[in-house]
Simulated scan of single mutants.
Amino acid sequence: MSPTKKASFILSPLVSLIVGRKQRMFVAHEDVLSRSPFFNAVLKDQFVGDNPEKVIALPEEEPEILSCVLEFLYKGDYYPRLVHNKAQDVWELEGAKQDYSTPDGSRSRSSEATFFHPGAGGLVLRDTAVYCAAEKYGLGELKRLALRKQGLQSGIPIDVILRSARYAYDNTPDSEYRLRAHYLAMIIRTRHIFKDSGTMQFEMEMGHPLFFDLFVAMCNHLDDLEEMSMNH
């Protein structure tokens, strides 16, 4: 952020954000919040004039996710940051550490990939929740960043993947396809793991739009493979 822009938002009025079921308070500058179409509309509709008591209630939001959104609005990224490993010429997550076992028993690199979401009833991928929040707040660049970061995660337990996929479907409009397509592709790509999963069977019996889309995607995948074999 340039010094001029920084000076500008420092002089901006402060807005209090009351977040989640426990009503945690966050404070942010109005000029920074207004970069989000969602917050810009709320600030224009609800607060007229120079009323210093500006408070926005977000009872359905998770404090940890809003913290990521605010960090992005101020800094252009959120923890763990996306950093370039010059030695290997790859992008990776800052402070990546060994903390997940893959289905074959090996260790996989991850960096605080999940958090407990009360609304989802368990652990979900943070980047999925951030993506859904970015959709809500109209932050397209944050959506792209969250999806890119999620693509760097691996070794996530099957139940977390399925719960996160459900969360993605439940918290994005039907017109949104990038995150949903990411999950469908991931499940198809690692179907040898999912097909023997009791968790997967239970989830399918429960029923969810995710599994209809997965069925269609699998059929299309098989059709593509058949067409390729016929052409060769």
Rank of each mutant, 00 (worst) to 15 (best):
S2M: 04
P3D: 02
P3F: 02
K6P: 00
I10Q: 14
I10D: 11
L11Y: 06
P13K: 10
V15Q: 09
V15E: 09
I18V: 15
G20D: 06
Q23N: 09
Q23I: 00
Q23A: 11
R24A: 01
V27Y: 01
V27P: 00
E30D: 13
V32N: 05
V32S: 08
S34E: 13
S36T: 06
S36P: 10
F38Q: 11
F39I: 06
N40W: 03
N40D: 14
A41W: 05
L43F: 10
D45P: 01
Q46D: 13
F47H: 12
F47P: 05
V48N: 08
D50C: 07
D50L: 03
P52K: 11
P52Q: 07
P52A: 06
E53G: 05
K54Y: 09
V55T: 12
I56S: 06
P59M: 02
E60F: 00
E62M: 02
E62N: 14
P63W: 05
I65D: 04
I65F: 03
C68N: 11
V69Y: 04
E71Y: 02
L73Q: 04
L73M: 09
G76E: 00
Y78D: 01
R81L: 01
R81T: 00
L82W: 07
L82M: 11
V83Q: 05
H84W: 08
K86F: 13
A87L: 14
E92M: 14
A96P: 00
A96D: 09
K97D: 05
Q98L: 08
Q98H: 01
Q98R: 11
G105Y: 01
S108T: 03
R109F: 11
S110H: 01
E112R: 13
T114E: 14
H117A: 15
P118Q: 09
G119R: 13
G119I: 04
A120P: 03
V124C: 13
R126H: 07
T128G: 12
A129M: 05
Y131T: 07
Y131P: 04
K136A: 09
K136W: 01
Y137Q: 02
E141L: 13
L145R: 09
L147P: 06
K149I: 05
K149M: 13
K149W: 08
G151K: 09
L152K: 04
L152N: 06
S154L: 04
G155D: 05
G155V: 04
P157K: 11
D159R: 15
D159W: 04
D159Y: 12
V160P: 10
L162Q: 08
L162R: 08
R163V: 08
T172P: 05
T172D: 08
T172S: 14
T172I: 06
D174V: 12
S175I: 02
E176C: 08
E176K: 06
R178D: 15
L179W: 06
L184P: 10
A185N: 14
I188C: 13
R191H: 09
H192K: 03
K195R: 13
S197I: 02
M200E: 03
F202A: 15
F202I: 07
M204W: 02
M204I: 15
E205V: 10
M206V: 09
M206K: 15
M206I: 10
G207L: 03
P209R: 12
F211K: 09
D213I: 08
M218I: 12
C219S: 07
H221E: 15
H221L: 09
H221P: 00
L222S: 08
D223V: 05
D223E: 14
D224S: 14
E226H: 08
E226Q: 12
M230R: 14
M230C: 10
